[in-house]
Design a protein around this nucleic acid. Structure first.
Length: 527
RNA sequence: GAGCCUGUAGCUCAGUGGUAGAGCAUUCGACUUUUAAUCGAAUGGCCGUGGGUUCGACCCCCACCGGGCUCACCA
């Protein structure tokens, strides 16, 4: 254990230092980073977090040492199907294959040769979407190809020691039957969790008894005829591949401990491990696929750019974070702030944007306007098209458009969707009074008659503003402010709003007329 | 039972061994033919409690209290 205090302020570099120390100690010149996947679920936000964070450590390692490295995305697809997932078709069919390795279970979606392959493809597509650099590895392939054979025989030779490590952690029932080796039933293809009657190290086999038929079997541990129980499997993989770095959630703390003990029993030092905190929902509950609480990657990417998700994942992996809708705007603004701070940063390594972009932030990253501000603006003007928002943005940044500010363009898109889904539905539209009704009808008629051209103003927006003002004056509003209150509350469903002439100009005259008429019609319905 | 996270402004959270920070909220002001976005400013904190280390602790160590989570079948 090195007592050296790290001089690295950013956690990816601190982690990279630990990896570098491990390589130095082992005399290795290439680092292997691993991320593992449970086979049962589809990729989720935690998957993104784990790969993103591992990628950052890897990049830091490269910068620190100049040594090559690989990132292995390892899918435990030989694991037995324990439960039929809720969110898939053909549940009855799947039921027939319970207990079999996922790569032997037909794909319920009918697209691939097996369920495992389906999930593997989903995973790879998911990771590719974010542009992660990784090598995919299938557990089934590794087992079947014999790539694990030496390690498996090694495990067999240490069978007793491994059982001794795991046993104290088990309940009394499982304690009696536990073995790290799970033979695949030669007849049914099911991954068997049975007591191992005898171990034959010399021939590389185990003896066991089928509890249903009482038939005795001898099964080779090599070549995919058997697999290992999870914790032993993890340890064996570390040993066989000589993994240098792997992170995992804190729910796996015990597994990391036990797997580390096992891999040491095999004579290999465990990889550098990082335990990250879990993500909680708005009520502080663990986010899990089965519960369906929290936030999905898809949802996040609907309302904010992917960089903001990286920003969220960057900060303090070892602190529990609540992950729900409200954190999206802030994460996005944090990202924008990071990008803005980077060019003048004395220590770019401390800046999340540096990590998110792998050290090279694209030229047009970042935004001159914050996302929260944009969301407010979208809400105030009830924006439902990019051009509406751009109109107001240009009052702020003359000449701005999607070409000059591509990232802002993405934010504009997200702001509109956010407004549509979260702000607009909550708006409270008030019914107009009789006086207001009369004025609104007047407004609609005047717009139809193109009356604004009779009013002074250098721009259509000014003419429209004067028209609106004039209409307020010719109806008995006292004070005149109440006419504008009416426009916002009746037409836009909010207490306050934009200057109305400018709003009409951007929203469109025809659409404004429609807005007025639908507001009036709504009132009639309600009555 | 084992372990982990957490306690900082009204709220949500940053933070570094060297004079406490942001956003929102609140109040005031600027801009505006009524507004709003926006901009400026102010208000607001025994940094959970008690010890210890230190010239100096929000930060490091210990204890306690409060809030919460995870694992204790499987992966």
């Amino acid at each position: 254990m090195s007592e050296q205090i790290s001089t690295q302020p950013s956690w990816p570099f601190r982690e990279a230092e630990r990896v570098a120390a491990r390589l130095k100690q082992k005399g290795k010149t290439e680092a292997l980073f691993e991320t593992g996947y449970g086979p049962s679920g589809l990729p989720h936000i935690g998957t993104f977090g784990e790969v993103a964070r591992t990628t950052w450590v890897r990049k830091a390692f490269t910068d620190l040492t100049g040594l090559p490295s690989r990132l292995l995305a390892f899918s435990d697809d030989m694991d037995g199907l324990r439960k039929v997932p809720d969110n898939v078709p053909n549940k009855e069919m799947l039921k027939q294959h319970l207990g079999k390795p996922l790569t032997k279970v037909p794909d319920p979606f009918g697209k691939f040769d097996s369920f495992g392959e389906h999930n593997n493809n989903m995973l790879q597509d998911f990771l590719n979407e974010f542009g992660f650099e990784f090598e995919f590895a299938s557990s089934s392939d590794y087992y079947a190809s014999g790539r694990f054979d030496n390690a498996l025989l090694h495990v067999l030779a240490h069978h007793g020691a491994i059982v001794d490590i795991i046993r104290p952690s088990l309940g009394p029932e499982r304690r009696a039957s536990y073995s790290p080796i799970l033979p695949i039933h030669p007849r049914t293809g099911i991954v068997m969790q049975v007591p191992i009657d005898q171990v034959d190290v010399e021939h590389g086999t185990v003896f066991w008894t089928d509890p249903d038929t009482n038939t005795k079997y001898e099964t080779a541990v090599t070549g995919g005829a058997a697999k290992l129980q999870w914790k032993a499997d993890w340890a064996m993989r570390w040993h066989a591949l000589d993994v240098d770095y792997e992170m995992s959630g804190k729910d796996l703390i015990d597994s990391v401990k036990l797997s580390s003990a096992i891999v040491r029993a095999l004579g290999t030092e465990p990889p550098v491990c990082l335990t990250y905190e879990l993500f909680l929902d708005d009520k502080g509950q663990k986010i899990s696929k089965s519960k369906g609480n929290g936030l999905s990657v898809e949802q996040w990417l609907t309302y904010a750019p992917k960089e903001s998700l990286g920003q969220f994942m960057y900060h303090a992996p070892q602190r529990a974070k609540r992950l729900f809708f409200d954190v999206i705007p802030r994460a996005t603004d944090d990202y924008i702030a990071s990008v803005a701070a980077l060019p003048t940063a004395e220590k770019p390594y401390e800046n999340p944007a540096w990590h998110i972009h792998g050290g090279e932030v694209p030229e047009h990253a970042g935004s001159p306007i914050g996302f929260t501000m944009l969301l407010n603006l979208a809400s105030v003007i009830n924006a439902d098209s990019p051009e509406m928002l751009w109109g107001f943005i240009r009052a702020y940044i003359p000449g701005a458009n999607a070409e000059t500010y591509p990232f802002l363009a993405r934010l504009v898109h997200h702001a509109i969707v956010y407004n549509r889904d979260f702000v607009a539905p909550k708006k409270q539209f008030r019914a107009p009074s009789d006086v207001e009704r009369g004025a609104l009808i007047d407004l609609a008629e005047s717009l139809k008659a193109n009356e604004m051209v009779q009013y002074p103003g250098a721009t259509p927006a000014e003419q429209l503003q004067n028209l609106v003002y004039a209409i307020g004056k010719r109806h008995p509003f006292a004070p005149l402010k109440s006419w504008f209150d009416c426009l916002y509350q009746v037409l836009l469903g909010q207490v306050e709003g934009p200057r109305f002439g400018g709003f009409i100009a951007l929203y469109g005259i025809e659409r404004t007329i429609a807005l007025v008429e639908s507001a009036l019609a709504r009132d009639v319905e309600a009555a």
